[in-house]
């Protein structure tokens, strides 16, 4: 850098120019929660248990998701439903411990558990972070 540039504070003005330029551009900050940011299609958020057309869960409680889960936050207790069909009696995800790696959805042989784009699960009470089968069946908000 030349002595002249240093004396004239060229870099300072260059920086100020950039700031000035953006002052007249459309802002990129989203005013969350009033404005919601678009989510990438492969974003991994809260789980959902997918259903058959008749409203029954697709899950057969094979236990693979619980086995692959690196944070060991999935609990499944299987049962036999009508006609000897296997289904989960208990399907719980302790979402507070989930790392959203998506292994459970990856390993599921029936696409019965998927990761939705819902990410708003903040709470002040940790015990509400245990999502049971009913919660997991619900369609994601937003």
């Amino acid at each position: 850098m030349g002595k002249l540039d240093k004396f004239l504070l060229t870099d300072l003005f260059k920086g100020l120019m950039l700031t000035l330029k953006y002052a007249f551009k459309k802002p990129i900050t989203y005013q969350y929660p009033e404005v919601r940011r678009p989510i990438e299609p492969r974003y991994r958020g809260r789980h959902r248990l997918t259903l058959h057309d008749d409203g029954s869960v697709r899950c057969v409680a094979c236990g693979l998701c619980a086995a692959i889960c690196p944070s060991q936050c999935i609990t499944i207790e299987p049962m036999e439903g009508p006609g000897g069909k296997r289904m989960p009696q208990v399907y719980e995800i302790e979402i507070g411990r989930c790392v959203f790696c998506g292994f459970c959805a990856e390993v599921c042989p029936f696409d019965a558990v998927v990761l939705t784009q819902e990410f708003e699960m903040a709470t002040t009470d940790k015990s509400t972070l245990l999502f049971d089968q009913q919660t997991l069946r619900e369609k994601p908000r937003g």
Binding site: A66, Q72, T75, I76, E92, E94, R97, L130
Partner: peptide, 10 residues
């Protein structure tokens, strides 16, 4: 062994 952290979470 699965569900270690969730088994007694209720």
């Amino acid at each position: 062994f699965s569900g270690r952290t969730a088994i007694t979470a209720q």
